[in-house]
Each structure stands twice: as structure tokens, then as C-alpha cells.
Amino acid sequence: MIEVIESAPLNAVQDLGRLGFRCFGIGRSGAMDRLALAAANALLGNAPDAAGIEAQLFPLVLRFTTDTLVAVTGADCGARLDGRLLPPFWAMPAKAGQELELSPPTDGLRGYVAVAGGIDVPVVLGSRSSALRDGFGGFQGRMLQSGDLLPIGPAPARTTRDAAGFGAASPWQALSRPACGDAEPGDITLRVVPAGEYEQFDEPSRAALWAQPWVVTTQSNRQGYRLQGDHALLRVRPLEMRSHGIVPGVVQVPPSGQPIIQLSDGNSAGGYPKIGVVIDADLWRVGQAAPGRRLRFVPCTPALAREAERELAGYLGTLRRQAGYLRRAAA
């Protein structure tokens, strides 16, 4: 078991999300930075769909009631295991009774904690993700709070060859940054496929979508990010849309002209015009973009999106293979 000693609100059990139940109006949920959670599972040798903990408000303090392997990924939350600082994207053995503490990250937004065997909450509609609005999935359909006891799934007893554990390159280091001509070093660049209503926007708006920085506002959370740019995005002739299904990454433009990126807990359907969609392979970058951060959009195609997806799969495959050499059976 993992005992939650202390948890700020909004931290919850997540996996890669829920698929196949959109016909009931149920969206994906799941980790905002799915790549970080997948990396944690790869380091531990877990199944890719194993659940972990997403920490987005701090502190988060956990105590292990049993010996296990633990991995911390995502934003560098200065994780400490019984006071000992762990580097980011790190896996190491944890002993029964030890405490893991995550603090607010200086860069990035969300940290992930996974254990060998995964968090073994019941699978509800095909996933262990927390569907917080509808109150199901994850740990009792709600955010974590102190006193919660999270079950750990079965896993072979393993430890690491080096008692200090082992780490991996973060995806920021390992993956190519989408190229954007005049982006500043701190800007997060995202590949965007033009969507159904792209052509309905006037020429200056279409140009501004790609040319200007978009600042993440404080009205940004797991449902979606509201962005702010100098030039509002306007349509030539505003028409009322029919409601349709929405996936994470859809960039909607309400009448204000300031776009919203729909994310993990976003509405599964909606009717605002969509100018583009952030490709799946870049959504993890959005999940780590804190308010105030500048986003830049780069045009993309489905073929390039699949290429980006293959690059992610390659990164995770390498991580999984290398981690296999760095773990060993526990004595």
C-alpha cells in the first residue's frame, strides 16, 4: 500500500485515459503529461496502462507500507525519499516506512509518481483514471486526501543494480523540439493540425495563429487552457455550430477570439468553432506549461503527427529496454 500522508487538492490517480465510452459522453481523462507517466512505467517495467499519481498541487507526501520500486517523472518536484533528493526522471527502491515528498516545481507543472505493479484501483469503464466531474474511476472517484490507502498491484520483487537507483533523459532533452522560427528559448512549441473551421477565420487571424505567442492564462486547468494573444481570432461570418465530439488538443475559439485548448478533463462535446488541434504527441508539453508560459503553434499534418508519435514510441522503447538492464531481482 501507499499511504497518503498529505496532499494538496487536485492530486489524483491517473493512467493514460479512457477509450471506447465516448458514446456515453465520457471523455478521456487520464494524465495531462501522458509521456511522463508512460516513462515512469517504462522505468519500472510496468504495463503501459498501469496507473500512477498525478501531482499538480503541493506538497504531496506519501509513505510506503511495503518495499517497492518507485519512479518520479514529469516536472522536477525536488522529490525526496526520507530526505534524500532524487533527480528528475528517476527510479529507485523504497523501503517500507519510507516517505516520499514532492514540492512545487521551479519549472514545469505536474509531477508523476509510479510504483512497480502500478496503483491497483479498480478498472472502471476500461481505465483506472479519475473521472472527477462524474465521480468515478481513480481512488473512489475523487482527488486524494490524507489518510487514503492506495493498493499496489502485483509485481515481481525487484530492486536496482545501483542502490541509488537510475535515471533517464527527460523527454525535453531526448525529443526534438518542434521548430518555430522566431520562438524564444523559453517558449513551448506545439505542432497544430488546422481543423474544420480554420478556413472560416479571416486572413489576419490565420496568420496570427502561427505568428504570435499565446500566453497561458491563470484560467487553465485539466479541463482546458485559456490562452491570450495580442490579435484575437475572428471569423469572416460567425455561424452557430452543431455540437460535435471533442478530443484533448482541440483549439476552440469562443466569440471573444481568445482560444481555449481542450485537455484531459475537457468537455467530450461542444460547439465552438475549432481552428486547429494540438497533435497528441505534443500534449505532454501543454501539460507542463504553467500560467504565464508562452506557447507557439507550428503547422503540422497527420503524416507528420504520426512521425512525432513514432519518435515518442522510440523514446519509451529505449527507456524500457535500458531500464531492464538496470533492475535486478530483489534478494
Binding site: A195, G196, I279, T301, R306
Partner: peptide, 22 residues
């Protein structure tokens, strides 16, 4: 009409890996 009406059906991209038939 104030509501979008298409003369022909269309499939548009709803991301790199999602499609919308209207």
C-alpha cells in the same frame, strides 16, 4: 441560416489522429 449547413458531406481533421464527419 444562422446555423452551419453543408451542401456536401465532409470529413475534416480533428487532430493528427481524429476525424469529424459532418
Amino acid at each position: 441560416s444562422p446555423v452551419v449547413t453543408l451542401e456536401q458531406p465532409r470529413v475534416s481533421l480533428c487532430g493528427g489522429s481524429a476525424l469529424l464527419l459532418e
